Simulated scan of single mutants.
Amino acid sequence: MPDMTPAPRRRPLWRLFIMPALLLVAAAAWSAFWFYAASEVGVRADAWAAREAKSGRVYECGKRSVAGYPFRLEVRCDDARVSLISQTAGAQAPFTARLGEIMVIAQIYQPKLLIAEFKAPATLADRGQPPSMKVNWTLGRSSVIGLPNDLQRASIVFDNPSIDRINGPVETPLARASHVELHGRLAEGSAKDHPVIEAVLQISGGNIQEVHPVLAQPFDADIQTRLTGLKDLAPKPWPERFRELQAAGGHVEIVRSRIQQGDLISVAAGTLSLNAQGRIDGELQMTVAGIEKVIPLLGIEKILEEGVPQATLDRVAPGVKSQDLNNLFGALDRAVPGLGKVVKQNANAGVTAGINALGKAAELEGKKARAFPLRFVDGTVFFGPLKVGQVPPLF
């Protein structure tokens, strides 16, 4: 009997090319999308820079490039410059910061998360003048979620930051730290038209020169704050924003502040606000362990040894006349030689006793401590009964 089995049907060859063709089309579409997104980076960046410029913050980029194909966008800005105009009370002249490179990274599938890296060093200068300050770090990075229309969270981190004053070839240290972090976010349930900002500042191994002897010694800080009174997050000059805060009755709540400097530990909480003159008013309730470590740094003994100039004395004991003190010390020395010097040398102990008398006994982290207020009155800072600083107006 002849073989009647039918010959196998041949499948069309074009079916073999369906998947490769689809992959090719998808790759082409993805590439078109990536290059479109890359072209939009410049448009969006220019629009953002234009909005910021209206608020007195001018951002410039010597050379801008986009890379990262196929799954992310890497925007690199070489020779970056930021000019700040009218960002502080009474300052109209531009102040320019300049650094070598900023790189911003965004994943295509997560466009609302931006990560930026900063290349050190940066220089700060007045317009038309050589750099007056130099800022350095080993790692500088920031992240933002929700930019630009729905800001939710932002962070910036620096490892080993330093600030030096530049005077020709001489660089003088102004500030140092081993690590600094600043985190901010919209408070849960906060309305967009009246946002409430929660922020945390952490400093490890920090010191600041030329401000106050207390800050010149290494310290660690962990400060949590809550800011109310904002109308929006639109770009605007800082003095204008501070006026807006003051008019709305806004304030900064120091939820918790902990500062440690050797054996000294200080915690504080309270509220600060701005008065109509742009100066800080408010009060923080402080608890300090090791307060005797701070008193010598206030310089009471040195002030007395130098003859107590009235301007200097006003900083630490307003209302006391220097001539009265000088006459008193002179009379003591005439009555009993050397007695005036002894009184001067024991001035810090007297101030410590005075603060202890005003404060209350407390315990902090298992150590004996004193509790008392740190007051801000029209920008003047009072540590117990002592005037220890002056904060300039913010608008």
Rank of each mutant, 00 (worst) to 15 (best):
N160Q: 15
P309V: 13
L245C: 07
A28G: 15
D3A: 09
A125I: 08
E117D: 10
D378T: 09
P195E: 03
K231T: 07
A45K: 05
L245G: 06
A361E: 06
T5P: 06
K134R: 13
G270A: 03
Q217W: 00
R370D: 11
V200P: 02
K321N: 15
A53R: 14
V288H: 03
E253D: 14
R9K: 12
R165Y: 10
Q323A: 14
T380Y: 11
R127M: 06
A371I: 05
E210L: 07
R185M: 05
R81A: 00
G184R: 05
L201W: 03
G42R: 12
F95L: 08
G350H: 05
S142H: 02
L374V: 13
F95G: 03
L23Q: 10
G146K: 01
A362K: 05
R279Q: 10
M133G: 08
G278F: 04
V58F: 05
V66F: 03
V255T: 15
E171F: 09
K54V: 15
E305T: 13
D281F: 03
A122H: 08
T138L: 11
P218R: 01
A49C: 06
L139D: 10
I254W: 06
E40L: 09
R256Q: 14
R141P: 07
I108Y: 02
F17L: 14
L284N: 01
P20V: 12
R279H: 05
T123P: 04
W14H: 14
F71K: 05
P393T: 09
F395L: 13
G278T: 09
W30L: 15
H183C: 02
D78T: 00
D333C: 06
G262A: 12
V41F: 07
P12Y: 03
E52L: 07
I300Y: 13
N326Y: 07
P121R: 07
V82E: 00
N348P: 09
N136R: 09
E283Y: 01
A49D: 10
P70F: 07
Q110F: 04
A125L: 09
D164C: 05
G384Y: 10
Q323P: 08
S132F: 06
L73P: 01
S31D: 15
I223V: 13
A50M: 12
Q107T: 08
G350N: 08
N160K: 15
G354S: 03
D193I: 01
Q152C: 00
S86L: 00
A247F: 07
F395G: 12
L358H: 06
P130R: 04
L84W: 00
M286K: 03
R98I: 05
A125C: 10
V320T: 14
V196C: 01
P239A: 11
T312H: 06
L124C: 11
S132W: 04
R279C: 03
A21F: 12
A49W: 01
K119P: 04
E188H: 01
E181V: 13
A175V: 12
I102A: 05
K302N: 10
P2H: 05
V351M: 11
S86M: 00
G189C: 01
S143Y: 07
A120R: 04
I208H: 06
A357R: 12
N167T: 14
G168T: 10
G184N: 08
A247C: 04
A349N: 12
K302R: 12
L99K: 02
A38Q: 12
V75C: 01
Q261N: 15
V308F: 13
L358V: 13
L227N: 04
R9T: 14
S31P: 15
D232E: 03
G340C: 09
V267T: 15
V58N: 09
Q285N: 11
E74A: 00
